[in-house]
Design a protein around this nucleic acid. Structure first.
Lengths: 110, 110
DNA sequence: TTGGCATATCGAGAACATTCGATATCATTG
DNA sequence: CAATGATATCGAATGTTCTCGATATGCCAA
């Protein structure tokens, strides 16, 4: 698989915050609107808006306006891509490994 | 599964950096020492040491001293835990969802 | 068309992250 | 035990993230 690390940094950064992790967890149950989400936290409305922006700009969350409300859902495709990416970089890969290893005789370092 | 969001924040933060993602990718090929890793980057030795500290304190990477060198490996167990956690918070869960949804009649928001 | 509710943006302050060069520590080898 | 090489830590500079209150915008309903 081809991938650029930088392509995934915003999504991983989006997940690297306790509040946003909980929001993702909540959205896994299905669509929620901003004010419903807000009720579960002790943060200001502007702070929630900031977090929702980070989540939606990262691609992990879809945001659609419905009248006065914003309705949020998880972007499952994007989340699957991220999971695949993490699976990929944490598992052995013949080709890439050849270029990083095998440069030195065994067990010899610097 | 029981989990606390905060337990996973350091590991996700550790992954939210391009340099560290590449290091994880490199380590997926097997053990490497600091100076081998350093060769692949254009960063100072102290900066690499900082990144390796973040990775090892997050639990994603094992660090063992071998004489003058540090040998790094991926902590596959911890990585699997993280993958499980991400899988968990991004998939529907009967019990938790009940507490977040079903508070209001259908489709009614704030 | 005005009032009120939902959400977004702005500006500022505090906290945290990243980088570096300099220096300290620790291990090995002569 | 001195010299050298590998790694860690320190202190400072710079950039980024998170939070808030204040205010703006967008939408609906009377």
């Amino acid at each position: 698989m081809k991938h650029s690390y930088a392509d995934y940094v915003p999504a991983i950064k989006a997940m690297s915050d306790e509040t946003r992790l909980k929001i993702i967890d909540m959205l896994s149950c299905g669509e929620m609107c901003a004010c419903e989400i807000l009720e579960e936290f002790s943060i200001s409305q502007s702070t929630l808006s900031y977090h929702m922006k980070i989540l939606s700009e990262s691609g992990l969350v879809n945001a659609v306006r419905d009248g006065a409300w914003m309705r949020y859902t998880l972007n499952k495709e994007r989340i699957d891509e991220l999971k695949d990416f993490i699976g990929c970089i944490t598992s052995d890969k013949e080709d890439l490994c050849k270029s990083w290893k095998n440069k030195k005789p065994n067990n010899q370092c610097c």
